[in-house]
Structure formats: structure tokens, C-alpha cells
């Protein structure tokens, strides 16, 4: 089967210098005193995985196990310290809601701004505008500055924009947790619909039920290492019993 994502021997290290240095004075002092030591923090260690096209891949793990770091590496936001990631196709990251929203602007302006952040053309956005508004059910508040929105309302707009075109890969980080149950249902329907259209989905969630419901395969991360990878049921069961 065709691959959508290949992650090969990825390591991610962070310099956890005890004090954040961001002024020249501090830098020179530290350099002089030979205190420029970095505490190396290994967020990910030797991660390799292949996700085939059309798969729905879940990642579970405790807080701080490296899930979000891995997603950021896959979306190209972070560069891995070692190893490489190969992506086949257009990627739509939903790492955090409202990325690229300017809260001073209205929802209408933000939809276009967000669309261009994701690399959609102006014409696509014009064509899809009504569809986005319909999906988010926010037409009443379109011309209200987004700073007056609740987080659930922001989530609706963000999800609607990111999934409006059929991306090859959709990255979903914990965002389905916001929004009321009806909208969550709607998002899941949309994900299912995208999947049947061949989109590869990578989901991070703390809701095991959600992973079990949506995913085909699953990976369990612990302290930056792969603890288990494979069929969703086995992994989820093991994770729940841990």
C-alpha cells in the first residue's frame, strides 16, 4: 500500500538550559563563566513508523510523553535533531485551535486569513466560504471580532476552515475535546467522510473511546519511546490496563 507518512529514526532533543538566555549580557556572562551548559532533554527517541494512505492513526500516551512534539515534527513545525520525516501530499494541521487567528479581526476576515495561512488560494476560499460558515453554524456572529468568541466557537471556525478542502493528511491534536457534543459528533462525521475520501488522519487524544471509535491503528508513546504500536484494540487495551 502507498505510504502517506514515513518517520524514520527520529530523535528530538531540547536544550533545557536552566535559565533561558535571551540577552547578550547574560550570554556573555554565561559564556565567560563557562556556564553555557545545556541540559539535554530527550523528547523523542528513535521513533520510526510508517502510516499508509487512508489510515486513521491514533497516538496515546500520558502528558509529556512526546505526542504533540511528534505531531509538530510531522507537520514540519519542528525540525528533528536526528532522522527524517517524509510526507506525501498536502497536510492540514489542527495542532491547536485558532492558530493564525487574529483576535482583533472578525470571523469573516479570519476565515480568509486562516485559509491563506494553510496555503489555500483566494478563489478556493471564496468558493468554500458559505460551506465553512454553514458547517461552523456561526453566520450570526460573522462580523464580530473574534476576541469576543468563546473557545468552542473558535474551535468550530478553525475546524471548518482546516477540513474544507480534502487534505491528504489531517493532523488532529486534542482539539475535538472542545465544542459541545453535537459539534463533536459533527467533527467525527467529517473525519469519517474525509477518511472515505482517502485522507490520512493522525489523531492525538486523551479520550480512549474516541481513539477506539475512529482509529484503525494506534501507537502508545511513553517517555518519548514507542511502547507499543499496532492494531488499535490491542494497544488501547494495553494502555488502559497499564
Amino acid at each position: 500500500m502507498d505510504k502517506a507518512i514515513i518517520v524514520s529514526n527520529v530523535d528530538m532533543h531540547f536544550n533545557m538550559s536552566k535559565f533561558k538566555i535571551d540577552s547578550i549580557k547574560e550570554y556573555l556572562i554565561k559564556l565567560f563563566k563557562r556556564e553555557l551548559m545545556y541540559q539535554d532533554f530527550i523528547a523523542l527517541k528513535d521513533i520510526s513508523l510508517e502510516i499508509p494512505k487512508g489510515d486513521v492513526f491514533g497516538i496515546v500516551g500520558l502528558n509529556g510523553s512526546g505526542k504533540s512534539t511528534l505531531l509538530k515534527i510531522i507537520s514540519g513545525i519542528l525540525k528533528p535533531s536526528k532522522g527524517y520525516v517524509k510526507i506525501y501530499g498536502v497536510i492540514a494541521p489542527l495542532i491547536e485551535l485558532g492558530a493564525g487567528f487574529d483576535m482583533e479581526l472578525t470571523a469573516r476576515e479570519n476565515i480568509f486569513l486562516n485559509g491563506s495561512v494553510l496555503g489555500f488560494s483566494r478563489q478556493t476560499m471564496k468558493d468554500k466560504f458559505d460551506e465553512i460558515v454553514d458547517f461552523s453554524e456561526m453566520e450570526e456572529f460573522l462580523d464580530v471580532p473574534m476576541k469576543n468568541y468563546s473557545s468552542g466557537m473558535v474551535a468550530r471556525i478553525a475546524f471548518a476552515v482546516a477540513t474544507i478542502t480534502q487534505p491528504d493528511i489531517l493532523i488532529v491534536d486534542e482539539i475535538l475535546a472542545v465544542g459541545d457534543f453535537r459539534f463533536q459528533q459533527k467533527c467525527e462525521d467529517r473525519i469519517n467522510q474525509l477518511m472515505s475520501g482517502g485522507t490520512t488522519v493522525v489523531i492525538v487524544s486523551h479520550s480512549i473511546e474516541q481513539i477506539e471509535r475512529l482509529c484503525k491503528h494506534c501507537m502508545w508513546l511513553e517517555h518519548g519511546k514507542i511502547k507499543m504500536i499496532g492494531d488499535k484494540q490491542e494497544v488501547c487495551d494495553a494502555y488502559k490496563n497499564s
Binding site: E104, S116, F120
Partner: peptide, 20 residues
């Protein structure tokens, strides 16, 4: 070229916010 719309949107955003 790919991000020209973003450039355009950010510029108009700046103009809007500057003279809001």
C-alpha cells in the same frame, strides 16, 4: 508565490489594525 495570499492578507490586516 505559494504564500502570496498570506502576504496580501497580512498586509491588509496590518493596514486595518494600524488605522482601526
Amino acid at each position: 508565490f505559494k504564500y502570496r495570499y498570506l502576504l496580501e492578507d497580512l498586509t491588509t490586516r496590518d493596514l486595518k489594525v494600524k488605522y482601526r
